[in-house]
Amino acid sequence: MIGFYNYTVILTYISFISAVAGIFSAAAMQLRWAIFFLAFSGFCDMFDGKIARMKKDRTEDEKSFGIQIDSLCDMVCFGALPIIICYRLGMDRIYGMAILALYGLAGLIRLGYFNVMEAKRQAEDGGARKYYQGLPITSMAIALPVLFVISPLFPSHLAFVVVLHIVVGLVGFLFVLNFKVRKPSVKEVLLIVGVVAFAVAVIVFAWRSWWELVNSRG
Rank of each mutant, 00 (worst) to 15 (best):
M1Q: 05
G3F: 06
Y7R: 06
I10E: 07
Y13R: 00
S15A: 14
S15T: 01
S15V: 02
F16S: 13
A19T: 02
A21W: 13
G22V: 12
S25M: 12
A27C: 13
M29L: 09
F37K: 04
L38W: 02
A39W: 09
F40V: 15
F40A: 12
D48R: 00
A52D: 03
R53T: 10
D57C: 09
D57I: 14
R58G: 10
T59K: 00
T59N: 01
E62M: 08
K63C: 02
F65H: 03
C77E: 00
C77W: 00
C77F: 00
G79M: 01
G79Y: 02
I85F: 01
R88L: 03
R93L: 02
G104L: 09
G107K: 00
F114D: 05
N115S: 12
N115A: 08
E118H: 06
Q122S: 09
A123G: 15
A128H: 12
K130V: 09
Q133E: 10
L135I: 13
P136L: 00
P136E: 00
M140L: 12
L147V: 13
V149C: 04
S151F: 05
L153A: 11
F160R: 06
F160Y: 14
V161H: 04
V167M: 11
V168M: 05
L170V: 15
F173E: 11
F173K: 06
L174G: 07
V176R: 03
K180L: 08
K180G: 01
V181R: 02
V189T: 09
L190Q: 10
I192R: 01
I192D: 03
V193G: 02
V200H: 08
I203N: 05
A206P: 14
R208K: 13
S209F: 13
R217H: 06
G218Q: 07
